Amino acid sequence: MKFAVIVFPGSNCDVDMYHAIQDELGEEVEYVWHDAKSLDEYDAVLIPGGFSYGDYLRCGAISQFSNVMNAVKEAAAAGKPVLGVCNGFQILVEAGLLPGALIRNKDLKFMCRTVELRVENNNTMFTSQYEQGEAINIPIAHGEGNYYCDEETLKKLEENNQIAFRYAGNPNGSISDIAGIINEQGNVLGMMPHPERAVDALLGGADGLKLFQSILKHWRERHVVTA
């Protein structure tokens, strides 16, 4: 399986994402610069955290207009897994690939610590290796991680089982404790916590590795033919 890690000016978690795929998952991965026009050669797309374009205007607001985002939308429409973490989640929302918005944390402060999440839906290509309701520990590092949507959108997310992760103790004020959501088709996941920073015990925990293993398992079930 071949992964693309999208790199924008200001991305700073791209190396973490690359390490998670190459060294922990053991799969092929390449950096893809923001001016790329095609992602056809890749099986999955990863949009890392950071401060793309300096977070000018609004987090992810400029990145949505990059050439590569047209290719990301094409990949999503083709059913390929697309994962956006932290700033990547913000970019997916700004690009219209996921509903809602990410606003300032409730206390208006940047947060950087490990938090507990609950797996709300383990029947997705990103969460199949977790148990339903499993408690996992994943780091956060954000100033605008407060997920918000209107009541109609929230109702739709809940009815369609699109809430993938919830905070066990809400650190940022996100509506309904939401930490991560998927699109209606189930192949685009946006989440504020950083699973790529929790893929090895040396990093303080490996609860994030199952997310990448879930993506790989899903791909193998559909593309690897055994004799």
Rank of each mutant, 00 (worst) to 15 (best):
residue 196 E to V: 12
residue 103 I to V: 10
residue 81 P to S: 12
residue 1 M to F: 09
residue 157 L to Y: 01
residue 56 Y to Q: 13
residue 51 F to I: 01
residue 39 L to Q: 03
residue 113 R to K: 13
residue 186 G to T: 00
residue 76 A to N: 09
residue 53 Y to V: 03
residue 99 P to K: 02
residue 40 D to V: 14
residue 169 G to R: 14
residue 63 S to C: 10
residue 76 A to K: 12
residue 202 L to C: 15
residue 65 F to G: 02
residue 111 M to T: 15
residue 141 A to E: 11
residue 9 P to W: 11
residue 23 D to C: 14
residue 108 L to I: 12
residue 83 L to M: 05
residue 6 I to L: 14
residue 179 A to F: 15
residue 22 Q to T: 08
residue 127 T to N: 08
residue 124 T to F: 09
residue 36 A to W: 01
residue 55 D to Y: 14
residue 2 K to N: 11
residue 158 E to C: 12
residue 194 H to A: 00
residue 214 S to I: 06
residue 182 I to E: 07
residue 195 P to G: 07
residue 72 V to G: 02
residue 169 G to L: 15
residue 186 G to S: 04
residue 109 K to Q: 15
residue 9 P to N: 07
residue 74 E to G: 03
residue 161 N to Q: 15
residue 210 K to M: 06
residue 23 D to L: 09
residue 218 H to K: 13
residue 150 D to N: 10
residue 123 N to M: 11
residue 75 A to F: 11
residue 187 N to C: 14
residue 227 A to Y: 15
residue 139 P to F: 04
residue 36 A to R: 04
residue 90 Q to W: 10
residue 94 E to N: 09
residue 77 A to V: 05
residue 57 L to Q: 09
residue 34 H to Y: 14
residue 61 A to D: 07
residue 14 D to E: 11
residue 123 N to L: 05
residue 145 G to W: 08
residue 162 Q to K: 03
residue 14 D to L: 09
residue 3 F to Y: 13
residue 164 A to K: 06
residue 95 A to V: 00
residue 114 T to A: 13
